[in-house]
Design a protein around this nucleic acid. Structure first.
Lengths: 156, 156
DNA sequence: GACCAACATTGGTCCGGCCAACATTGGATG
DNA sequence: CATCCAATGTTGGCCGGACCAATGTTGGTC
C-alpha cells in the first residue's frame, strides 16, 4: 500500500514514483509517529496504550459518561471501550457503576489514580511530540500542524 | 493509540489533549490518505493493491530482479512478495522464471501488460494526491511535503 | 401487551506488517 | 572433498488495530 508500509524500511531504495508521492511521505511520517509512540508507551506506560489514554482523556474532560457516550465521543468502538475500561477498572483508574435510572447503562468515572495516570501519560505523549517534530524549526512546526489539520479535516 | 485511530471518526468530539497533538493530527492525515487510496484502488484498480503497485514500480525502474532483491528494495516482506507476485503472475502482469545460474533464485520481469497496469495505477494514485492536498495552496503543498520528508527521514 | 431502540458484552472478522520454519542450493572454509 | 553456513522461495502463522454481528437486557412507545 502507499499507505501501509513497513515500519523499519530504509528509504534508500524505494521506487521513485512511490517515494516522492505525498501519500507515501504521509505514511512514513505516520510510521515514525507510531513507532515513537509505541516505544514510549512500551517503555513507560506500564501496559497502557492509546485506547486507554483516549478514554481517560475523555473522562477527565467531559466527566462521568456511559460507555456508549464514550464510544461516540472518542470514536472507539463500543466493544473496544468495554475492553479498555475493564483493564483500567482492574487497575483502579476508573470506576463502573450501574446508572440508577437506567439499569442497562454503566456510569463510568475516572478515579484519582486515573487522573494521575493521565498526567503521566501526558508527559510520555508530550515527549513523543518533541521527538517527532525535532527536525523542524518552531515556525515550521506550527505550519506543519496547521497544514495537517487542513488536510485531515477536509470532509470526505 | 494516538496513532491508530478510527477511519470514520468525526473529530467533532475528541478530547482536547488528544486532538491538538501532532501525533494525532498525523494519524488523521494518514487515515484520510489511506481512505482515499483504498477507495480509489477499490473503484479502479481491479483488485490490485498497494503491494502490487510498489512491486510493479520496482520492476519497472530497476528491471528484472530476484524476489529477495524486490523484498529488500521495496521493504516488503519476502513472503508477501511471493504472494503479490503470484497474484500478478496469474494476471500476466509479471513473469517468474528460474535463474539459470542460481537455481534457487527466481528472476522476475514485468510484462507489457504489467507496464500498462502500472500506468493505470499511476493515474489512480495521482488522482489521490490531488485530492489529498486539495486544501493546500501550491506553495503550501511543497512545504508540507518537504517537512514531511524531514520528519519521516529522521533516522530512528 | 407488543414492539422497537439503546446498552453492554462476547466473540468474532479482516488486513497489514512481521516472523518462524522449511527445503533447496551455492559458496566458503577446513 | 566434506562440512558448515548463508541465501532463496514458500508455507503457515502471529499480532494489533479497526470493525462488525449476535445476544441478553432494559426502557420507552404505541
Amino acid at each position: 500500500m502507499l499507505s501501509g508500509m513497513p515500519m523499519r524500511h530504509q528509504p534508500d531504495r524505494t521506487p521513485d514514483r512511490v517515494k516522492d508521492r505525498p501519500t507515501w511521505i504521509v505514511s512514513r511520517v505516520f510510521a515514525r509517529s507510531s513507532a515513537l509512540l509505541a516505544a514510549a508507551f512500551e517503555a513507560h506506560a506500564d501496559g497502557l496504550r492509546g485506547y486507554h489514554y483516549r478514554l481517560l482523556a475523555a473522562l477527565e474532560q467531559w466527566g462521568a459518561a456511559s460507555q456508549a457516550d464514550l464510544s461516540r465521543g472518542t470514536g472507539i468502538d463500543r466493544s473496544d471501550v468495554t475492553g479498555g475500561l475493564t483493564e483500567m477498572e482492574g487497575r483502579g483508574l476508573v470506576e463502573r457503576r450501574p446508572d440508577p435510572e437506567h439499569k442497562r447503562r454503566n456510569i463510568v468515572t475516572i478515579t484519582e489514580a486515573g487522573r494521575e495516570a493521565l498526567l503521566r501519560l501526558d508527559d510520555i505523549v508530550d515527549g513523543v511530540q518533541a521527538e517527532l517534530l525535532a527536525p523542524l524549526s518552531p515556525a515550521q512546526r506550527k505550519q506543519f500542524i496547521e497544514m495537517g489539520r487542513l488536510v485531515a479535516d477536509r470532509r470526505a
